[in-house]
């Protein structure tokens, strides 16, 4: 029996969170000094020209009025258009999302493919030389500054062999060239991601391995492989999946540095550009999108765990 009450409450909660975060975005943007009129006029801004353009753009209104207007539009699902190019924000963001999504996906794949086995291996044999090697290695992944790793990854091949990855092309356009660029770029993030996944996998596996039913399984005479894969891993998957989905959501907003180093036209670069040019609608659209992803992922995870494990509801 699914607790509809709980889900309804959770939905309401998520909506409130969304509203708070997106409003905060609006106010943070409005305290940043300087506005778009100056940016659009560039070198030739004079006070008179700025005043005229501000009026034309409607940014001379008080913050409160603009906020109400913006919120009204947001609730109607209208994010507006870029102050610069008038391009609808939904279109602008989805154009840039491809890149970031691919980056986040590849990084996550690398993290899972290498991180989970590494974590399991060290959990099955805690204290072994493998464990002793894998644990600090995973910490190294977390410790290495991504901008440093990224620069080295891009510049060393260039210095040594005059190699540079090809320029960005969409995945669907030319998959091979796309991957030649995206794989090293996502590896920078994947490295750190791998580290956190292997740590969580190790911890969860350690706990699961000591559960009674695992002992029972061993007692039944099942092989280690069967126990690990059929029983232990399956149960360890929930925390790993939780981490992966939360990290994935966070990654969508955390690829800025890598995008910058590898010249990828992604969401992060767009966000920074919009902050610099004071293209408020775009920044707000970006934050609203990120918050939406975060809230949704959390909501789904929450509801899913509740449905799967009714005990949690009463905790």
């Amino acid at each position: 029996m699914v607790a509809w009450d709980y889900i309804a409450k959770r939905l309401l909660f998520a909506f409130a969170t969304f509203l708070i975060a997106s409003s905060a975005a609006f106010f943070i943007m409005s305290i940043i000094p300087g506005d778009i009129a100056y940016r659009m006029l560039g070198d030739f801004a004079t006070p008179k020209a700025v005043a005229e353009l501000r009026q034309e753009l409607g940014v001379d209104q008080p913050v409160a009025i603009r906020y109400v207007e913006w919120l009204g539009n947001l609730l109607r699902g209208d994010l507006g258009g870029s102050a610069y190019s008038q391009e609808p924000i939904v279109a602008l963001l989805s154009r840039k999302l491809d890149v970031t999504l691919e980056l986040a996906f590849l990084a996550t794949m690398m993290g899972v493919v290498f991180g989970v086995p590494a974590g399991m291996l060290s959990a099955i044999r805690p204290g072994s030389w493998l464990d002793a090697f894998l644990r600090p290695a995973s910490i190294l992944g977390l410790a290495a500054p991504s901008f440093w790793v990224g620069l080295l990854l891009l510049l060393l091949p260039s210095t040594l062999w005059n190699y540079a990855p090809p320029r960005f092309e969409p995945l669907l356009g030319s998959p091979l060239r796309n991957l030649q660029l995206m794989v090293p770029a996502s590896a920078v993030i994947g490295f750190a991601f791998m580290a956190s996944i292997s740590r969580v996998s190790r911890t969860t596996m350690l706990e699961v391995v000591r559960e009674d039913y695992i002992r029972t399984a061993f007692a039944k005479g099942l092989s280690e492989r069967t126990v690990v894969f059929r029983h232990a891993l399956r149960n360890a998957l929930i925390p790993i999946l939780t981490l992966v989905s939360l990290q994935f959501a966070a990654l969508l907003g955390g690829t800025v540095i890598v995008e910058q180093i590898f010249s990828l036209p992604g969401l992060g670069q767009q966000a920074i550009a919009a902050i610099n040019t004071r293209d408020y609608p775009v920044v707000q659209g970006f934050v609203v999108f990120m918050v939406l992803v975060y809230v949704t992922v959390n909501l789904v995870l929450d509801v899913a765990t509740t449905v799967l494990d009714p005990r949690i509801r009463f905790a």
């Binding site: 510049l155 260039s158 005059n162 995008e259 910058q260 180093i261």
Partner: peptide, 19 residues
């Protein structure tokens, strides 16, 4: 023409690689 955002070394890397 396209933008290279990784700094002058990234530009040089692209140039040397014939991009």
């Amino acid at each position: 023409n396209f933008t290279i955002t990784g700094g002058s070394d990234a530009v040089w890397a692209d140039f040397r690689a014939g991009k």
